[in-house]
Design a protein around this nucleic acid. Structure first.
Lengths: 335, 335
DNA sequence: ATTAATTCTTTACGCGAGTAAAGTTTTATA
DNA sequence: TATAAAACTTTACTCGCGTAAAGAATTAAT
């Protein structure tokens, strides 16, 4: 940088200022620097920069599973939102493992990020560890909330989204039976279960739950196995299934197909199946999956905004507000 | 670190050595350090460390699309392999955009990584830029090769994998028609096309190509649209379709289902569809997709090994060897 | 026990920036 | 045009660690 200062005819401190925020220098000097930059193509050393900065311009983004298209999608939108602010997103996936989630957070710590956006594993997360982390580093939780953590939360309004789906299903056919995992890892699952029960009761129907055994994140497989069992058993309370999420529904549909059960709205169909999330693949299932779309854009945008409010100290650390976005019914062929 | 040296009773240079490679100090001192570490939990500053190291312990991994389950899968396996070596993987996705691919590489440069594993976009990649990068930084290409780049390549043996699939299909029914994109971004697509043609001719059959219009990485949609057109048109050369990749096949199957065309091996089916890659979702399509599995583990492992050979200077920079792994036929219900 | 080979400690400098302070030049305001 | 404000230059120190060199302490080999 010393050398570049010499050849460009601009003092090193000014250059330093420029690289931190190009807008903080006079337009004329900014132009001179940019011209010199073209000519000598110098690039400040990332490590030296960050060594002396209290906070870097990095923002960590941690999700449970990077290979889950749902998280991949929301992570991508969040990435875009962060880039627009001039910060650099650092994506990390926890592969569904609590140890890795913690390790990711610790690694982020050593990067001294300006803030962190965390979609926690949920039930499996090390609550205490996440909590201390959120107290040390400006953080915002998204997708899944952990109660009692000192960080704002941005996510979907499961009451509303499950509500409109139950409404829709009841209006157009038999009331749905809820298909879920017995002991879900994801906190949203519990909210959806409760929302289902509440909606059903509000409409004067009796709630029915089918709870699949199985742990982990292999939702399609669990949906498939339990779906096959259920379809074979043939003793469904109603002819309509509402799955707790699309991945379960994808497995369920696959099982139904294999068992020769026709799913959909056509007269010859004996079953209706709906999902939740508008998973990228739900557009291509057979039949295409009726589901509730989460407002990815809004969630991503608000998460980033909320994080920057925390970073800039506009909100107090203990303000634990919760922002929920409504879902949108996506009507397709399966229900 | 100075402070930690004081309280732990070990000199700073020795500590420095320890953190670089815990095995490089005497076991007795290693133990003493670890005990002190428990007690005072000190963590060296990442930026200060890397500022003075010529090469960091980071390894960049760049793939075209992190949200594509195929890349997510192979990236994950590669991650594991890197972690085993004590290095730190840094995952980056290019979102299918050549500018972002270049930006990712430039960002990696400023991180001074020990090496980079790159799955290039392919045809869209900025060949010259990638080439200079590979000359500056020890790199290995995987998944997709770019001819004339000075870096080793590790990938699938498309000749073999398409070959066994064509063999299988011809042996068990009508010879396949090849379904692909007219102008694919991915270099593998060309190899598969040629492999298909060669295999068909070797078996004495006439090759037939269906080439879908459309650009970009929305393969399912392209497969769906063109699949519907083809199925509706009804003038297929044979009753068997071999798709250039699983994502096209997933779209195709969805279209076939919607059009009421039964796909599979059962007597009532009028069409067979096969794919390529053993995409994570191919297990759950309707019917389940017969495909060729790439040897993810082997490709990941060898990629990492090859990279370390380059890093350690065992291979010359211009050695441009190519390692290909055979695919494995995965017989399911669709063909 | 003696010698040689390892491993540590001490001391000291370097990396590439951030940043503070004081003085100088440029630009905006009156 | 005078004056104040803003932006810049100079100088100098800091950050936290890598690393080299020389000598002291420990361990292994004879």
């Amino acid at each position: 940088m010393e050398d570049f200062a010499a050849v460009s005819g601009i003092s090193r401190p000014t250059l330093s200022k420029f690289f931190n925020d190009p807008g903080s220098v006079r337009v004329s000097t900014k132009k001179r620097i940019e011209e010199a930059l073209e000519k000598y193509d110098y690039q400040p050393n990332l490590y030296a920069i960050n060594q002396n900065r209290r906070l870097t311009k990095n923002i960590g983004v941690v999700v449970p599973y990077l290979s889950d298209p749902f998280f991949a999608k929301i992570a991508r939108v969040i990435e875009d939102n962060i880039l627009e602010t001039g910060y650099k997103p650092v994506l990390l996936g926890s592969h569904g493992r609590p140890e890795l989630e913690i390790e990711n957070l610790e690694n982020l710590r050593s990067i001294k990020p300006a803030g962190v956006l965390l979609a926690p594993l949920g039930r499996a997360s090390d609550r205490a560890h996440v909590d201390t982390f959120c107290n040390d580093v400006p953080s915002v939780l998204f997708d899944a909330n952990i109660d009692g953590i000192g960080a704002p939360f941005v996510g979907s309004n499961n009451e509303q989204s499950v509500g409109i789906m139950v409404d829709y299903l009841c209006r157009t056919g038999e009331p749905p039976t809820f298909f879920e995992m017995k002991s879900p890892t994801n906190p949203n699952a519990f909210k959806r279960r409760n929302a289902y029960i509440a909606s059903m009761e509000a409409l004067g129907h009796e709630p029915n739950l089918i709870q699949a055994a199985g742990e982990g994140w292999e939702f399609e497989e669990i949906g498939f196995q339990e779906g096959r069992r259920v379809v074979r058993g043939g003793k469904l309370p109603t002819n309509t299934i509402l799955c707790s999420n699309d991945r379960l529904a994808i497995g369920f549909l696959s099982a139904a197909f294999e068992e020769g059960v026709r799913v959909g709205l056509e007269p010859e169909c004996t079953l209706r199946v709906a999902g939740h999330d508008d998973h990228p693949f739900s557009r291509y299932t057979c039949p295409t999956l009726t589901t509730v779309s989460q407002d990815y854009e809004a969630i991503a945008k608000r998460s980033v905004e909320t994080l920057f409010e925390r970073i800039e100290g506009k909100t107090t650390a203990d303000s634990q507000e919760e922002t929920l976005f409504d879902g949108r019914l996506v009507m397709r062929a399966s229900a």
